[in-house]
Design a protein around this nucleic acid. Sequence first.
RNA 1: GUGGCCUUAGCUCAAUCGGCAGAGCACUGGAUUGUGGCUCCAGAGGUUACGGGUUCGAGACCCGUAGGCCACCCCA
Length: 429
Amino acid sequence: MPTFRAPRGTRDLLPADHVVFDRLLRTAADLATRYGYHPIETPLFEQTAVFERGIGEVTDVVEKELFRLAPRTEESESWTLRPEPTAGIVRAYVQHGMQTLPQPVKLTMTGPMFRYDRPQAGRYRQFWQFDVEAIGDPGPAVDAEIIELGHRFYAEVGVDGVEVLVNSIGDAACRPAYIAELVRYYRRHAASLPPTELDRLERNALRLLDSKDPAMADLNAAAPRITDHLCDACAAHFESMKAHLAALGVPYRVAPGLVRGLDYYTRTAFEFYVAGREGQQQALGGGGRYDGLVALLGGKPTPGIGFGLGLDRVMLVLAEQGGGAVGAPEGPLAVVVGADAEDTVARLRVATELRAAGLRVRAELGRRKLGRQLEAAGRDGAHFAVILGDELEGGQVQVRDLLAGTQRTVAVGDLARELARAEASHRHG
RNA sequence: GUGGCCUUAGCUCAAUCGGCAGAGCACUGGAUUGUGGCUCCAGAGGUUACGGGUUCGAGACCCGUAGGCCACCCCA
């Protein structure tokens, strides 16, 4: 019964979890660099209007999941913890005049996002995303390149069975007419619509296509498809994007029901999905094109595309698939131990010298007897124990090879060199 | 935001019909004083999530709260 615990929907990443987490961060950073993306950090919170205007007022994220900060005074502005990275990055793009840079501007950011919804495994109020955004390139080739990048991320971190779902949701030229037709279609069948679906029809008709209600299956299968109602420009974009994906060897599936939850998306929408696992948190990441967003946030009309990949869900799936989750934090190369409980000064001196030489060294500062110290060193995963004893008066210590069980006397001045040499011989043979 | 299941030591779990809260792992100490992994011994660790109720008596039954999980909503 701890007095305090992590807030609902948040969790502590303990050192053992961090081994996997670090690997994800390194892979993300390395991949983004290889593809020409530059790191950016935006604040964890923004003016609420950035999200309301950018994401859309009638989305679930804005209507019920915003993590609003309590105003400090009556007059103070409304701040909200970021629920997704794109709006903030686009705000920065506009604020710093990045339209004057060579286009596209390719940015990457990995960090925590916040949504105030009901927690479940793989769904947290604070969760981590690896995000990339390419702003200023209207062409379908960059869409394919970015999807391929996401696909490669999962491959490199070792997630099996990731499916790529793609769709086109049109643009301002063709989507309104399609939605009107969709509404007409469902209204004709209003009698067979469940009440909740009727309600969604009025709010956001595209969402009906996504319904998991079995009663909707036949109706949705026969519903007009957005991809049959794209304007010529959107249709050409979609075809070219798919051709590029195929040429890059990325396996994908067209998912006509994939509409995504944020209003700013246009044309390309995609999701990375892992099927067949326990629990419904199967969307590992997703993204799409947002050709209207820069203008919406006050910039001149500029196209953009990006994705966000959920690192928490990747860790979850890796653990389920039996990969990665195993991993103790890296232990020290050597532990400095001593026979005399009072010799902590000597232990620290030796350890400090070895650390200055660049070695990973833990000093045993407790009062445990030597046998226990060696036992702890072994469990730590240390390869060597440096044992301080009476020989120290003659400038010498014992170096015990904990893996081989051998031991030799070494002059203190030669310690760093000797440890490095012995470690090298472990590796080579 | 809606509905359901769950909560006993740091972790994984026992505790018969309502009758003295336990084990394994982990942790700490010891096995004739400076040598680990194995073994043996011992110790520490609990308001049985929290608050109320029923009862001679509650870990167990009832109500509420919190947290976790599952399904929705939606998404990462």
